[in-house]
Simulated scan of single mutants.
Amino acid sequence: MIKTIPILIASTLAMAISVHANSADDRYIVKFKEGKGPAVKAMMEKNGGRSAMALEKRNAMAAHLPAGALTALRNNPNVEYVEEDVKRYPMAEETPFGIPMVQANQVSDVLAGNQTVCIIDSGYDLSHEDLSSNSVSGSNDSGTGFWYTDENSHGTHVAGTIAAIGGNNKGVVGVMPNGNIKLHIVKVFGVDGWAYSSSLVAAADECASNGASVINMSLGGTFKSRTEDRAFADLYNNQNILSIAAAGNDGNTRHSYPASYDSVVSVAAVDSNKVVASFSQQTDQVELSGPGVDVLSSVPVGMGLSTTLNVGGNSIEASGMEGSPLDSATGALVDCGLGESACANAAGKVCLISRGNISFADKVLA
Rank of each mutant, 00 (worst) to 15 (best):
Q115A: 12
S199F: 06
V82R: 03
K46E: 07
I120S: 05
G174L: 10
T156L: 04
D205K: 12
S198H: 07
A21V: 14
S23F: 03
A208S: 13
M61C: 06
H154F: 00
P291N: 07
E340R: 11
D26G: 00
T307H: 02
N140S: 06
H64Y: 06
D294R: 09
G155Q: 01
T4K: 12
V172R: 05
G348F: 09
S218I: 08
A39G: 02
K349V: 00
D294Q: 11
S153N: 11
W147V: 06
D26E: 08
L13D: 00
T283Q: 07
G179N: 01
I99L: 07
V301F: 02
N178Y: 09
M91Q: 14
S280V: 08
L352T: 04
S137E: 10
R254N: 15
S108M: 05
I120L: 14
C336V: 07
T4H: 03
Y89P: 05
G143C: 05
N216E: 13
P100N: 07
G348Q: 02
M101A: 13
A347M: 04
R50Y: 07
A245G: 10
N169R: 07
K36R: 10
L183V: 08
A60I: 00
E206A: 14
G49M: 01
L352V: 11
E287G: 05
V214R: 03
A246N: 11
G143W: 13
G339K: 00
N78V: 01
V201D: 00
G302Q: 00
L333V: 12
G211Y: 01
G113D: 14
A104Q: 01
A21N: 13
G179V: 14
G179D: 03
A259W: 14
F97R: 01
G174W: 03
K36L: 06
A39H: 10
V191L: 09
S256M: 13
N210H: 15
Y81V: 04
L296M: 12
A245P: 13
N273M: 10
E80M: 13
N140Y: 04
S153E: 08
G220P: 02
L183S: 05
G220Y: 12
K57N: 07
K224C: 06
D141L: 14
D271L: 11
S218K: 10
D271E: 05
